[in-house]
Write a protein that binds this DNA or RNA. Structure first.
Length: 419
RNA sequence: GUGGGCGUAGUGUAGUUGGUUAACACGUCAGGUUGUGGCCCUGAAGAUCGCGGGUUCAAAUCCCGUCGCUCACCCCA
């Protein structure tokens, strides 16, 4: 039945049955972060809009059409967080983290909001696990983030993934490349789509990842950024590749890889599953060497990634990745009368304090009904308390798997269950 | 934002050349005598057929709108 009010478009309830997937992914991510000594950070769900306009970029889709923007009662212009990196950098500055040993390694697991048209693997509220290594300009930092992302998928059991790697240069060489790109497109405008015609001026890098069929020929012949990198960027890129190579992480250099956020410099990367579909990317990231200063901090390099938890789970399900077995209810206490029920309550309480999970049945329901209930909850044991047991301060303990049962003193239940 | 498909009990489905009490499975609850599960049997509850409007003597079945889901585009996680 559809209720009058339902979850807003593009949002979803994550029901109890789904939670094991989420727990598994979160636990794996957190454990991995621990090994690399990344510490968790939580930032507010909403921020000053300016934070995103300034960093993500005014011409990007995220800012232009996907942000949830609103004014609060004090006329503050706020935005629901559309991505995770800028807020973390804001916090880095605000809390003087440059005074800590660099780089500062941070991770987050948090909801992200984008006003997109929903489809499989794409939501208006989704969740990202992301990390940021701030304060390290070296190529090894890039490689470290790539390794974490790759190991995460590996540990979760995802297969068939492709790591795409590219460099989009820096303030030094990017203008030169963009000029070359514009020159190349100058006499081909009649052969590309309308979007691309506009991109030539507004956002030329994005020309490269246009998926329109009519534009593919032109893209194929376009100059590659890797041929235009300045010495420093070229050097950095080959070092990153070298590290990734040394770690044994398979990857391809994809000169057409461009990310949709303006703050990236040099290294950009994305991981894609074999199975094509609306959502081709499970995770992506890159370096952002000017983001901190754009926000008023002292010039500080940074690198990080974000990966979508919904998409990870989607791909795990597609690949039939097994989940660690769920925990089982240890004891269901069946009680035959109101008096027995009080007794049962006390027993369950004692068991739980001893680390055993326990539930008590409804004494107004028949023993048979309670037993059925125990069975459908998949309890390991049913502990039956009736008049006989009350008199002798004992319980009839039945192992549901094989139907065997014995009467044990009330104090021995825990030991029997744990055995 | 653009285009295509879809929308029936908690879940999965049947029912559409419009015609009396909308069907089935699973699930839920109860019962199959005397203190006991899983299988089996019986029964019950549970759907204003997404919502609103229209056509008609009559609509779950036709038309329009709307909301939502879904696929593709766009973009991304």
């Amino acid at each position: 039945m559809t209720p009058d009010i339902q979850a807003p478009r593009g949002t979803q309830d994550i029901l109890p049955d789904e939670q094991p997937w989420w727990d598994y992914v979160r636990d794996t991510a957190e454990r991995l972060c621990g090994k690399f000594r990344y510490a968790q950070i939580d930032t507010p769900m909403f921020e000053d809009v300016a934070l995103f306009k300034r960093t993500v970029g005014d011409t990007t889709d995220i800012v232009q059409k996907e942000m949830y923007v609103f004014k609060d009662r004090g006329d503050q212009e706020l935005a629901l967080r559309p991505e995770g990196t800028a807020p973390v950098c804001r916090a880095y500055i605000e809390h003087g983290m440059h005074n800590q040993p660099q780089p500062v390694r941070l991770f987050y697991i948090t909801p992200i909001f984008r006003y997109d048209r929903p489809q499989a693997g794409r939501f208006r509220q989704h969740h990202q696990f992301g990390i940021e290594a701030i304060g390290d300009a070296s190529a090894s930092a890039d490689a470290e983030t790539i390794e974490i992302l790759w190991r995460l998928y590996e540990e979760l059991g995802l297969t068939g993934l492709t790591l795409n790697l590219n460099s989009i240069g820096d303030a030094d060489c990017r203008p030169r490349y963009l000029e070359a790109l514009r020159d190349y497109y100058a006499d081909k405008l009649d052969r590309v789509c309308r979007d691309c015609q506009a991109r030539v001026e507004r956002n030329p890098l994005r020309l490269l990842d246009c998926k329109n069929a009519e534009c593919q020929d032109v893209i194929a012949g376009a100059p590659a950024f890797t041929d235009y990198l300045c010495d420093a960027c070229g050097d950095h890129f080959s070092q990153v590749s070298g590290y990734v190579e040394a770690l044994g992480i398979p990857h391809v250099v994809n000169p057409r890889l461009v990310r949709g956020l303006d703050y990236y410099t040099r290294t950009v990367y994305e991981v894609q599953p074999e199975e094509e579909g609306g959502q081709s990317t499970v995770g992506g990231g890159g370096r952002y060497d000017h983001l901190i200063e754009q926000l008023g901090g002292r010039p500080t390099p940074g690198v990080g990634f974000a990966t979508g938890i919904e998409r990870i789970i989607l791909n795990m399900k597609r690949q039939d990745v097994p989940l660690p077995s769920a925990s089982q209810l240890d004891v269901f206490v069946v009680c035959a009368s109101a008096a027995a029920r009080v007794f049962a309550f006390k027993l369950a309480s004692d068991l739980r304090r001893g680390g055993i999970s326990a539930l008590v049945g409804d004494s107004t329901r028949s023993l048979k009904a309670q037993m059925r209930h125990a069975s459908s909850l998949d309890a390991a044991y049913a502990a039956i308390i009736g008049d006989r047991e009350l008199e002798s301060a004992s319980v009839t303990l039945k192992r549901l798997a094989d139907g065997s049962q014995e009467t044990v003193p009330i104090g021995d239940v825990a030991a029997h269950v744990q055995a």
